[in-house]
Amino acid sequence: MSTLHTAGRERVALLPRSAEELSELLARCRAEGRRVLAIGTGCALREDLLLQERDQIISTERMRGIIEYEPAEGVVTAWSGTRLSELRKTVEAGGHLLTPALPLETERTLGGVIAAGASGSDRLRHGPLRNHVLGVRVADGEGIITRSGGRLVKNVTGYDLPRLHTGARGSLGVIVEASLRLFPLPAVRNGWWLDAQSGAHACRVALQVRATRAQPLSMTALRLDNRWQLHVELAGHAAVIEDEERILRGISSSFQANEAGRTDLEQLMLRLRNQHHLSCQPARIEELVAQLEADPTTGDLLVDPGIATVRWTGARPVPEVPPLSGVQRALEQRIRKAIDPHGMFLRG
């Protein structure tokens, strides 16, 4: 057992070491009529999460380890508590790139990342995480573990339930294991950045890059201490990188190699976690950023222009998202009921 702080209170979490233990715990919770919060390390829970006295937290932290990784195949399967850092180390040794790339990977579990539907900044090239979750095994409220998808890069057998679990924040059951699609490890990888006059300017440059043949791994614009920077990460064959560097310099002569790595970025991403965030259509990002930076209450800003997503600190609220339509809400409820008939799982 371990303890966890949520909403200012110390809570006890159960730490099963295996799928069997997890099943037993869940069956017990069900028998005792307790709701369950599934977590990984619990580092990224919703801030508005309210736990009741009887609610049980179950962490997959100790269900860790790689189940299958065949370098000749390009797929990794691991227990849900496996840290992203460990996964990355293993597959890089086999010549693969793991996506998503997230800050503080030693703290992040595979299950948590999938449940949070968290795509990294490398989404620009590789697409959102939900495209890469090939299969999952999930424990339901009675402790029964079911499988969907598989360990193959291409597979359409059965409904695509992995997509349902990706981003469901644990509300549909506890992810026990998952398989991820991998990408070739680039031979060369380097970062470039430029000082931008404004957020809008940084976005403009980024969109210019997007319109060329260059395919950066990520592009991030950020405002730190009132200075705007645009970071571009390149990755691939040496000759391709050379070509893409030329393209960058052709767009702006002030692009320079980033020797320092991504430390600034990581700091900022951590600070901005769980802060306001908003996505839009790529063509609107410049305008959106301009509005935000014009607002004197806005603090830090982090922008993924290619993905058209902004995160910020400050008073400016996220515009109200229109509520789900009645049809969608009702359908979601029925699906939740179908997968979690006893309403046992909390959305973490």
Binding site: S279, A308, Q328
Partner: peptide, 22 residues
């Protein structure tokens, strides 16, 4: 059920993903 607006990440469960291949 109108889920036609392109979104960066689905709002709610990924019903579009579930429907595809069903």
């Amino acid at each position: 059920l109108d889920l036609s607006e392109p979104q960066v990440d689905p709002q709610g469960l990924d019903l579009v993903g579930l429907f595809t291949g069903s």
